[in-house]
Amino acid sequence: MFEAIAFYLFAFLTIAMFYITVTTSQALYALTALAAGMIFISAFFFILGADFLGAVQIVVYSGAVMALYSFGMMFFDTTREVKEKQGNKYIVVGLATVAAVLVVLIFSAPILSDNIIALYPIGEAGNTQEVGVVLFTKYLVPFEVAAIMLLVAMISGIVLAGKKMDASLTLMTEKEIQDMRKEKKSKKALL
């Protein structure tokens, strides 16, 4: 019974949070609702007994949304509402059609799902170990590909951010900084 109560509670909360994320024009509401929604999703993992995935969901997404916050901080005055540009009307029609098709698919999924056998991740060894075993045997290739993609993203991030970092104020002495200010090169130096 508790499971059912918890499921419906968190389902409602998650949908409400993501609804706010999509509809609000206040950047801070959108980001906070997104973070809250992501954390509420972890509840489903806990209900299903996949504790490890639940905790990872919290750790990963709270950090990821935090990065979004810092972008929000850089690009907007987050205490003001964002004026959205009203785009092409046809996009709205197209998205509505796709959404309708998706709803039909979602409701017809249970009919098909009888034929699908799920790889139930919880065994006797405890679910952290089970996740590890599955990740490093059956899904080793996708796991490695994901790792390489992250490596590519990291290196390109470093290249993009480090282009103009010729000098670092942290590593310079007081005299060097003053000399640099005299030469008016201070724009190039980043902390």
Binding site: I58, S62, T128
Partner: peptide, 18 residues
């Protein structure tokens, strides 16, 4: 006594910085 206690504690403490 969940079997991922440490991960849970660190994750929630991280959320606290929100």
């Amino acid at each position: 006594d969940i079997n991922i206690g440490i991960l849970y504690i660190l994750g929630i403490m991280g959320v606290g910085l929100y």
